[in-house]
Amino acid sequence: MTALGYNFGYLDENTKRMIRRALLKAVAIPGHQVPFGAREMPLPYGWGTGGIAVTASVIGADDRLKVIDQGADDTTNAVSIRRFFAKVAGVETTERTGEATIIQTRHRIPEIALREGQVLVYQVPMPEPLFRLEPRVSETKRMHALADYGLMHVKLYEDIARHGHVAISYNYPVLVGGRYLMSPSPIPAFDNPKMDRMPALQLFGAGREKRIYAVPPYTSVRSLDFEDHPFRPVRADAPCALCGSRESYLDEVVVDDRGGRMFVCSDTDYCSTRQATREAAE
């Protein structure tokens, strides 16, 4: 049952129509930022209002929703967004990546490969990949129009000249479909290769900045690099302390006040599934 007094999915139909039109154009122009009218939401900007607006416009009664925050299903933001949609859309929710039809995410891509029929909705704080280099929107718009991304290449070059490597560990800029420079939202650079030719549809919503963009399935997403300094995804050099994975992205957790720390999978569903299969095998 959906909560009385709300339209299905919280947003009114006029707003959904406007967002739906923006989404279709975003899919037709991979990586291009489409402006939309972000509505006031029952939580503040910075808590995923853009992602929620996109999810609310896409979700139907048959969908099963998963929400993750930094890979975890059980953090405040993830739990409250999941409850929000259970309330205003009456949809089933899940923590299993494989069972979800819509996955709303803050700053991670699940470890297991996504498939066709799934939609990945990213919460984006800053959609403009060039904003630290050029603050004027009128200028960045023109740079996108001309595919003039020299500024970003200079930034990467300066990193290499200064530090010997590109010093970006998250929000690493990508080129979509060989044309548009895109911010992958602040996912770790480790996740960037998963975006390339992903079978699932990827939608991005930035509420405060009022932009929507998308990457259609099987679309090339290339992390910017140089021939002699190829892109390398970064991962902590340790196995997960709970499930032993050497492939997953790890969070460093401080465990006491004497410098003790451990590395655990950031993707809680991946980690608990691996722990369960290991226990079953023993």
Partner: peptide
């Protein structure tokens, strides 16, 4: 039933545009 019908139609369109 406009709300679910529009959602179902949009979802088909989104899939159609994405594939």
């Amino acid at each position: 039933d406009p709300v679910p019908a529009a959602q179902a139609c949009f979802r088909a369109l989104l899939e159609a545009m994405a594939r």
